Amino acid sequence: IAPDEPLNWVFQCRGDGQADTRLMTGSVPEPHVVSERGARYLVHVLKGQNHGLFLDMAEGRQWVREHAAGHKVLNLFAYTCAFSVVALQGGAKQVVNVDMSAGAMAIGQQNHPLNALKEGASFLVHDIFKTWGKITRGGPYGLVIVDPPSHQKGSFIATQDYIKLIRRLPDLLRPEGRVLLCLNAPQLSPAFLMDQMQEAAPELVFEERLANPAVFADVSDERSLKVLVYRAPAVAKAATA
């Protein structure tokens, strides 16, 4: 902050699954728009625990921007559709956003015109586990993004539900399509995702784990945000009788 700029300070204390958010000094504009690498997003820093943009996922968004060109993209657990914005900025043909939160999706729909994106995105306010037919019929996809909550009752519990998603991936991806698997659960290591991929979708090949932003460096890579890239084989697996 420059010496002549006013200080605007929001403090949030989290505990027992709840968040206490307070404006300590200054003010927060409404609506509040932030920018990241040329993209703009609506955020609400005084409301709730999640503000509309997860800053530690910045490198994941940049990877999508660099790899979305020409692809049909499936954005699962889309939240406010930040991945959709950068995919279209990167040249995606189409993005299908799916999330069960109508409120988050409404913000996502606003984020697109905020970035002068008038077409290319669709928005499905559905429970993903009850919408597989529609999701599958919309494919195959050149890029699938999976960024679920780690533990949210009534929506997704990683230790129980992640493998259900992984089993679907081979049928969703076109040959050589990629999947971005995300998980932010300190108690679960990268091996949790890799072992489940080996069990439920062994034909998909691990390519890399994306580095997290330096400002979010953790004392343990095992506990930090995990963003893994897998690729489908060049030739689709032949059906067996």
Rank of each mutant, 00 (worst) to 15 (best):
V144K: 04
L181D: 00
D218V: 07
S224W: 11
E207K: 14
E208N: 09
M194N: 07
Q187L: 08
V205F: 14
V227D: 01
L225P: 00
C182D: 01
V219R: 14
Q187M: 08
L143I: 03
G177P: 01
R167Y: 10
R167T: 09
I145M: 02
E207Q: 12
Y162C: 03
T159W: 07
P149S: 07
A185N: 12
E199T: 10
L228M: 14
Q196S: 08
T159Y: 10
R223W: 13
E208L: 14
E207H: 06
R178A: 09
L169K: 01
L193Q: 06
D171Q: 13
H151M: 12
I166Q: 01
Q160G: 05
S189H: 06
E203R: 06
H151Y: 13
Q196I: 01
A217M: 11
L180K: 03
G142R: 05
S189V: 01
Q152C: 08
L169D: 04
L143C: 05
L188T: 02
C182T: 03
E207V: 15
L193M: 15
I166H: 00
S189T: 15
P149G: 01
S220D: 14
Q196T: 02
I166L: 13
V219D: 15
F156G: 02
L210C: 03
N212H: 07
A201C: 08
M194Y: 05
L169H: 04
L172R: 04
V146P: 00
D161N: 10
A217V: 10
N212M: 15
T159R: 11
I157R: 01
L169T: 06
R223F: 12
I145A: 00
F216G: 03
I166D: 06
E176Q: 10
L173E: 04
E199M: 10
Q196A: 12
M197Y: 07
